[in-house]
Design a protein around this nucleic acid. Sequence first.
DNA 1: CCAGAATCGGATAGGCCTTTCCGATTGGCT
DNA 2: AGCCAATCGGAAAGGCCTATCCGATTCTGG
Lengths: 232, 232
Amino acid sequence: MTPAARRVPDSPDPSAQGLRIDARHNRDRILSAARRVYARDGIEASMASVAREAGVGIATLFRHFSAREDLVAAVFADTMQTYAEAAATALADPDPWHGFTWYIETVCGMQAADRGFSEVLTMTFPSARDMEAKRDEAYRGFSELVVRAKEAGRLRPDFTTEDLVILLMANAGVIAATAGAAPEAWRRLVGCMIQSYAVPDPANPEPLPPAPTPTALYRAMIRLSRAPAERR
Amino acid sequence: MTPAARRVPDSPDPSAQGLRIDARHNRDRILSAARRVYARDGIEASMASVAREAGVGIATLFRHFSAREDLVAAVFADTMQTYAEAAATALADPDPWHGFTWYIETVCGMQAADRGFSEVLTMTFPSARDMEAKRDEAYRGFSELVVRAKEAGRLRPDFTTEDLVILLMANAGVIAATAGAAPEAWRRLVGCMIQSYAVPDPANPEPLPPAPTPTALYRAMIRLSRAPAERR
DNA sequence: CCAGAATCGGATAGGCCTTTCCGATTGGCT
DNA sequence: AGCCAATCGGAAAGGCCTATCCGATTCTGG
């Protein structure tokens, strides 16, 4: 009997294998706490606040994840998987332009749903190998989407894959600024950007998603001027 | 002789009146230090780091500016003035569409030149009266620009003034993410957005500013994954 | 059921920040 | 020149954070 076989490996998370069940339990509590905290406060949230949210000692948190990067990578492993799969899904769309826009809207929507993920998408974590692998996978898929949409004559020829990165950074900015107060503002940005990517078809002008109300944006601007802690 | 007349009021900054010359000198050193620090690190930079940069004691900083908001307002008073004047300048342009795009490019360029200002533009500081007054002035000017550009038939009718706020937030995101590593990326965003605002003229397709190189954006993403202190 | 290994979490050290206090210094007026 | 109020800046109190240490607790295989 090998040492590894002594423990029951029934956690969904393979990296929890070989842990005592109380340790595995804590690991899960930490991960789900971190998911909540990062979604709300972004990935710069303190390790201490994650430990508090999880109800474990600080030492326990550091024992499981010795660097913030490890925790971030573990928390967003699933989401990065979904992210990579989205590119494949978009490629399966018979309409190249529709696949292209669906992908952009989906990815930006994932950003809007999780502030932490929104930040992760615009950063790179050289030490988190499989996160970067997922990113590459998505990137390759997106490149193919771009080629097809150009071939279909719907995407402007001077579009580059860097434009997606720029859009993700821009979207992260809108989401960070409006979070809560104007939760649909990002759609307006993405709608504009997609229109600017399209080869114009004057016969068929696309409507934009609605703009947020002045009040909603004003609330967003007030939120930002408060200290991070007050922002809830 | 009134008490106020005892001091020589020759500082360019009216709020420095009535201060002893050493105090006024320190106030100026603090302001110019804060300008540098905020431009580099954003307005969340610590009060302590501003005091260090200025070479004054922490107490001196707090004696002059008892809250971060006061310091921010004092630092950006000039810039907000320029911001408000930009709207007037744009209104003086005989070509409404050109005035409209010039204004947007100018304001976004001001964001790119100063990370602190970039953040200030997407926040509101209810207690800093004259900063908000300048913002209102610029807002009124921009509203007029919008009306004229629509009347000229060049700006899409569903454009709203909130779209500018969204663009400023998006641009702040790109600038925060690319600072230094891809300093021209924001132009690409702004170019795209302006094209999406325009009523399309298929006979005259505008070229976009160049996209950043993949390497430049990669460097930007690496920068972000480091701790704020390491970012220089 | 027990012994030992694995794990826990409070405590601690060290850093940076904000804000206030107060003795030392200095500018400005007479 | 000298006095006094204005001003300075170091120090200190209190908070939060990262990272590590170590005695107490809990799990697990035999």
